Simulated assay, not measured.
Amino acid sequence: MHQFLTIIGIILIGMALRSCRRRIFRKLGALTYLLSTGLVTYFLTGGNIPLSIATIFIWFFLPWIELISRVRKMRLPLENTLNEQRRPQLDDFPEAYQTISELESLNYEHSSDYGWDWGNSTQHYSFYWHPEERIVVAVCLCKQSNIAFSYVTISSRDSDGNIYRTSNFPFSPTLKNTPNVAWNQIACRHCSLDSSLRCHQKFIQKKGGSLESLMMPDPETLDSEVESDMQEQIRFNLKSGIITPAEDQKFRYSFRGLCYLWRQFIKDMIRLS
């Protein structure tokens, strides 16, 4: 009974920490859950410390269940084309309406709406641009099974062919970025669009870019730029061995690619905990 109450007490402490607003306490709560897992094994095995530690690390290998059972069988198109679409109902996407309203208040002009199917998800892009800031903002609306969410990707290009992107996409990228793309992932919560735009400009300067050398966006070619960037990214990942060609002009993840995705899963587990 003493051992059982000890485990219950640790779990309750973890629940209390996970309910805190500060990230450091939420991370401590996640560590507390790991500790409780090790303690269960410790008590059941009569004090086997190596096995208890091994049990804790099993959590980090759980993503392999999905990688082997689902991702390994996925076949994604080598070439994908954006199709012009009407904007879907914003009521289905959290915070999308607020983001678009803030964009309009900051004098960003709406350019176009496009979408495509990517794997098991449907993605819609509403493009906005600002000629003076030389920035393109894509409000991305995603539907996957019964899950719907929105995020923002802020992009700038300079005259040397470098691309700077800032995004609050809640997960790590599933493909490696090409060498000319600088990726800045910011928190998806407690961050206004205005502060995200300022963060984007600071990120460009941090990477050695110049705001004066940014190219003026062309609203007529935003969709073709996204398609071209995706094609270049796929070619780069093919060359890197992350993905490999499959039948019917599609690709699949190689074993090296599955290991890459596993590392991305672990990064998300640590970052989002």
Rank of each mutant, 00 (worst) to 15 (best):
T55I: 05
G115Q: 14
M269G: 15
F57Q: 12
M1P: 06
P94A: 09
W64Y: 07
N83Q: 08
V137E: 03
G47S: 11
T32V: 06
S19M: 12
I7M: 13
S240G: 15
S36G: 04
H200G: 01
K176I: 15
T32S: 10
G9R: 01
G46A: 07
W129M: 00
W118K: 15
F93L: 04
L35F: 11
E247H: 13
P245R: 00
P94S: 14
L31K: 03
F25N: 06
L31P: 06
M216V: 07
S254G: 01
L17C: 08
M15N: 09
F251S: 03
N146E: 11
A30W: 04
E79W: 08
G9K: 04
W118E: 12
T122D: 02
I10F: 04
G209P: 00
N162W: 15
L31T: 00
M269H: 11
I65M: 09
N120V: 04
S254Y: 00
Q231T: 14
P217D: 04
I68A: 03
L238S: 08
I234M: 15
E104L: 14
I163A: 10
M230V: 14
R263K: 10
E232S: 06
I270C: 12
F25G: 02
S121D: 04
I100D: 02
L34C: 02
S224N: 14
I24F: 10
C188H: 08
D160W: 10
S167D: 09
E247Q: 14
H130C: 01
L76A: 05
A182P: 08
E109G: 11
G29Y: 03
I10L: 10
F169V: 14
N184H: 02
T32F: 10
N146Y: 07
A30V: 10
A187H: 08
Y125W: 06
A138F: 04
N48S: 15
F169M: 06
T153V: 12
D229A: 06
F255R: 10
Q233Y: 02
W262I: 00
R252H: 03
M1W: 12
T153G: 06
E66I: 13
G46M: 15
L214P: 01
L197Y: 03
S101R: 07
L261A: 00
Q89S: 15
K73H: 05
D268A: 02
P63Y: 05
K207V: 06
L35Q: 04
I8Q: 11
K207F: 02
L39R: 01
V40I: 03
P245C: 04
S156T: 01
T174S: 07
N180T: 09
F171M: 08
R86D: 12
